Amino acid sequence: KELVLVLYDYQEKSPREVTVKKGDILTLLNSTNKDAWKVEVDDRQGFIPAAYLKKL
Rank of each mutant, 00 (worst) to 15 (best):
V6F: 01
V20F: 07
Y10C: 06
I25W: 03
R16A: 14
Y52Q: 03
V6R: 00
V6E: 01
F47P: 01
T27Q: 10
D24V: 06
R16L: 14
Y8N: 12
K38F: 15
Y8E: 13
A51W: 13
P49F: 05
G46F: 15
T27H: 10
W37E: 00
V4C: 11
P49Y: 05
P15K: 09
N30G: 07
L53P: 03
Y52D: 03
S14N: 14
L7V: 06
V39I: 08
I25P: 01
K54R: 12
V4D: 00
L3N: 05
N30Q: 09
I25F: 03
R44M: 07
P15Q: 11
G46E: 09
N30E: 15
T19I: 05
A51M: 14
R44A: 05
S14M: 07
A50Q: 07
R16K: 12
L53W: 01
D9W: 04
I48A: 06
A50L: 05
Y52M: 08
L53N: 00
E2G: 11
G46D: 03
A51P: 09
Q11F: 14
L26W: 05
T19W: 05
A36W: 15
D35F: 15
A51L: 11
V6A: 06
V18C: 08
D43T: 10
Q45K: 09
E17H: 09
V20E: 01
G23M: 03
L7E: 02
K55C: 10
E17W: 10
T32I: 10
I48P: 02
T19Q: 06
T19R: 05
E12S: 15
L56N: 01
V18H: 05
E40G: 07
S31C: 14
L5P: 00
K38W: 15
L56C: 13
E2M: 13
E40R: 10
Y10L: 02
D35R: 12
F47I: 06
I25E: 01
L56W: 07
W37C: 05
T32N: 12
K38N: 06
L5V: 10
L53V: 12
N33P: 05
E17D: 07
E2P: 12
T27G: 05
W37L: 02
K55A: 06
D43K: 11
D35A: 11
D9C: 07
L3W: 14
L28E: 00
S31K: 05
T32K: 10
L5S: 03
L28C: 09
D24L: 08
T27W: 12
Q45H: 09
V39N: 00
E12A: 15
K54W: 10
G46P: 04
A50Y: 03
L29F: 03
D9H: 05
S14K: 07
D24K: 06
D43N: 14
V39P: 00
E40I: 12
K38E: 15
T19G: 05
K55I: 13
K13V: 08
R44K: 11
A51Q: 14
E17Y: 07
V6C: 07
A51C: 15
K38A: 09
D42M: 11
P15V: 09
E40V: 11
V20C: 07
V20G: 04
R16E: 15
N30P: 04
V18Y: 05
V39A: 01
V4Y: 06
E2S: 11
V41K: 14
E2N: 12
E17I: 05
K54A: 11
V4K: 01
N33K: 08
K34G: 11
N30I: 07
T32E: 14
Q45D: 07
K22P: 03
V18K: 02
T27M: 10
F47R: 03
D35C: 14
G23L: 02
L28Y: 01
V20L: 03
L28T: 01
D24C: 08
K54M: 14
V41T: 13
V41W: 07
L56A: 03
G23Q: 07
K34P: 15
L56R: 00
R44N: 05
T32A: 13
D42Y: 09
G46T: 09
L56H: 05
